[in-house]
């Protein structure tokens, strides 16, 4: 290898300076690395979003229940009762309305424990041993599920479900909201006239007006923001380990 003094600086075969040759791949790999990081972040954000999405596009359709249990008939008073299209009429000739049962009649443990609980078939049979003896698809189903001879259980599908890493307890909330009706955000006028207005309104804070729902569906986001905002406003604990453990 001989280089004469008159030659220009060593530019290699293609005439590109060496430092350019070194820099280009360095920049290229650097760029690739940055792109890689950006892609990774995007993927992370997108998967996180679809893992626990905010309900900006509305809530998921409620799951199919084994029996189409109507809260309107049992907890509301607005609906008129009918059997196979024929209106039910009371002894005095008046049309019969929904029963307006107290939420705690069926969700018995809601005031005393973490879970609200869904009633056992036995509770349904209090009434449905008598009510609905007529041939009705729903009641056939109910009986098929073990109403007679009062064994077995109905596999209700969960509608409201927080992620496994969150612990929610009903009883302190019910107690607090019962004592502080002012905090209840969306009190529903259709239930205020009832004797059972208190619990139904309390529940409406997080579940909406269930008594007017043919099929239970989620209407509140029940995201961490909602929980923590209310906690902060009402001097409830906001320590992470209140809800996460």
């Amino acid at each position: 290898m001989s280089t004469s003094q008159t030659d220009p600086p060593n530019t290699g075969k293609s005439g590109i300076p060496t430092w350019v040759k070194i820099l280009v791949p360095v920049i290229a790999t650097g760029g690739l690395a940055v792109t890689g990081v950006l892609v990774a972040i995007t993927v992370f954000v997108v998967t996180a979003w679809f893992g626990l999405p905010l309900p900006v596009f509305g809530f998921d359709e409620p799951p199919e229940q084994p029996i189409a249990f109507p809260h309107t008939v049992h907890a509301g008073t607005d609906v008129l009762l009918d059997v196979n299209g024929v209106a039910r009429v009371g002894g005095d000739g008046q049309e019969l309305h929904g029963l307006g049962l107290d939420c705690t009649f069926c969700h018995r443990t809601v005031t005393t424990s973490a879970q609200a609980g869904v009633p056992a078939v036995q509770l349904c049979s209090f009434c449905h041993r008598v009510v609905g003896a007529e041939s009705n698809v729903q009641f056939e189903q109910l009986r098929g599920a073990g109403l007679e001879p009062f064994v077995g259980a109905i596999n209700w599908q969960r509608v409201h479900r927080l992620p496994d890493s969150v612990r929610f307890v009903h009883d302190p909330h019910i107690r607090f909201l019962t004592d502080n009706p002012g905090v209840i955000g969306n009190a529903d006028s259709s239930i205020t006239g009832l004797s059972s207005a208190q619990p139904a309104q309390v529940c409406s804070t997080c579940h909406g007006s269930i008594a007017t729902m043919e099929k239970v569906k989620q209407v509140e986001p029940l995201k961490m923001g909602q929980c923590v905002n209310c906690h902060r406003d009402n001097e409830a604990p906001v320590d992470c380990s209140t809800c996460h453990f």
Partner: peptide, 15 residues
Amino acid sequence: TYHNNEGLNVQVYNR
């Protein structure tokens, strides 16, 4: 992981 006001060293799993 942080220290809460009850002297517990808390681990927030989802965090």
